[in-house]
Write a protein that binds this DNA or RNA. Sequence first.
DNA 1: CTGAAAGCGCTTACAG
DNA 2: CTGAAAGCGCTTACAG
Lengths: 344, 344
Amino acid sequence: MTSPELKPQRHSRASGRVTIVDVARLARVSPMTVSRALKTPALVQLEARDRIAAAIKQLGYVPNQAASTLASAKSQVIGVIVPSLSNSVFVDTLTGIRDSLNQHGYKFLIGESSYSPDKESQLISTYLAHAPDGFLLSGIEQQDALREQLATHNVPAVRMFDLNPGNSEVTVGFSHEEAGYSIARHLIARGYRQPGFLGAQLDPRMMKRRHGFRKALSEAGMNPEVEVLTPVPSTVELGTKMLGQILQQAPACDAVFCCNDDLALGVLFECQRRGLSVPGQMAIAGFNDLPWSAFANPGITTIVTPRYDIGFTAAQLLIKLLRHEPLETTSVDLGFKLAIRSST
Amino acid sequence: MTSPELKPQRHSRASGRVTIVDVARLARVSPMTVSRALKTPALVQLEARDRIAAAIKQLGYVPNQAASTLASAKSQVIGVIVPSLSNSVFVDTLTGIRDSLNQHGYKFLIGESSYSPDKESQLISTYLAHAPDGFLLSGIEQQDALREQLATHNVPAVRMFDLNPGNSEVTVGFSHEEAGYSIARHLIARGYRQPGFLGAQLDPRMMKRRHGFRKALSEAGMNPEVEVLTPVPSTVELGTKMLGQILQQAPACDAVFCCNDDLALGVLFECQRRGLSVPGQMAIAGFNDLPWSAFANPGITTIVTPRYDIGFTAAQLLIKLLRHEPLETTSVDLGFKLAIRSST
DNA sequence: CTGAAAGCGCTTACAG
DNA sequence: CTGAAAGCGCTTACAG
């Protein structure tokens, strides 16, 4: 006969995983002391610390982040939303964010909004389930519903790539309008008579660059209406097509400002194909200073954007917010640089 | 006198967050039924389901992923490690992974190993704290310690970008050696006498492409020793420099195989600058078919790699593994295509 | 400097 | 189809 005391065991849910309790037992301390040794070692006696370290190593202990998040209501995760990963501009920003967050033990979840406000809101809803400590968002044109959602969940956010003076939302970027303005001023100073604008994607920041560009032309008494706009993403291929389109519209066009360098590269290739000398018959200016721009033939005049620094600075500001440290300003202008090269 | 029963409340840790209990109360069901309505709605009566949905909406309830992960030991998170995010090849793979995982409710953590096995192991250790359900790794040359770690934690992994026939590790990619071989065969068939090799990064897959390239030259009785190798990452700028280096080493070199298209673009610009006609005086072949390759002037001959499909397929296989479904094969060869254009 | 108790918000494993 | 109880592995809030 089997013992009637030997009931089948209920609720056996052990994951087999090594836990803080196992480490504590081996190191002959309480679980609480192991937790302290990991988070605030200064509060734990050196001897105990050594025994704990040895036990962790021997057992191959890895802390369970889910348990930590649940108990502390802090996830050490930052949600990052960028418009696109195919655009190396945003990858550079992610690198800046990573370099900044890694120093402070934060991880990040990367989301790609494809420039869609709806998708951005949706991603943020999904990420909220992971209880992120904060968000890094792209642009300043978020939907009201999104603002409410962030406020309800009490999650701080920093906006990147634009400026937002006079607004309480923390923003890190530069003035796209001024950048477009300065390209136009440069082309005017060089003596081009009919500069045109090539715009893709048509996101808000691109439209601001366009606005600055048109403003400078108008101020100089020149025609600001020479342009080709399309909502599709900018690529080299698109640039090759847009050159033909703008020349058809304005045969006298002698310079183009491309809203991104990949468009500019496409224009350059197409000029070569058509036997148009650059900058003699067609000047080309781009935007962002992508890695190849300086090495093209000829080198492409462009706006150097501080995208790595935008990511790094935005992350630093977010960490300050999380620590409730005071900020000097809510709108950080990192500026831009006009790089004049042989294409204009 | 104040009542002696009114003790100060201990252990008040309420986060203020809306929980499943709040939803349950409002919907007049148990928390368990709310949980079921979310995960397995078919098991919940339609009326209850409607009341729960209304309560969720009214309260703005968002499930706490940390609590779910802790209770179920399933995180719905996949760890993805790629060598580099600056290389658009891997970004395309991430897009494929995303398209595949999103269908099944998984999120993913992206790590960048910078082609370093040490960094890869380190990232995986960090990610293990998040209890990922699985990993998608790049390459087949992982360290033994890493294999052990994955085995200990019982986390399945799929390798990407290479082949691994006869091995039990699941791998999705194509043969880099065959790709290098086919580029060499093409250059030989076109009549080039002294093809050279330009290699950057020197990662294992690049070395396999080189091996295939050299093998074809040797078989044809040609000199396989014309090459420039450097461990730095491939860029357009690097390509402009490497052309000079290989011409110095072998002035008769009349064709180059670049281990990546950005190198090829740099070579093209430098040829233009030096007045070398392409392909007349110098033929150029690249690798990967980056977005601009077809639109350069001339279009660049290259190997079209199935990088989106690699990501998509690898994620599909991982999901099968997680569901303990049988796989037909452990090494999936997605192949490659030789795109012959005007540069060769 | 250390530890016992309680709780974070879910899901598992039952029982009905 | 539904629910009460227990537990996942940590950290908080005390008390010493």
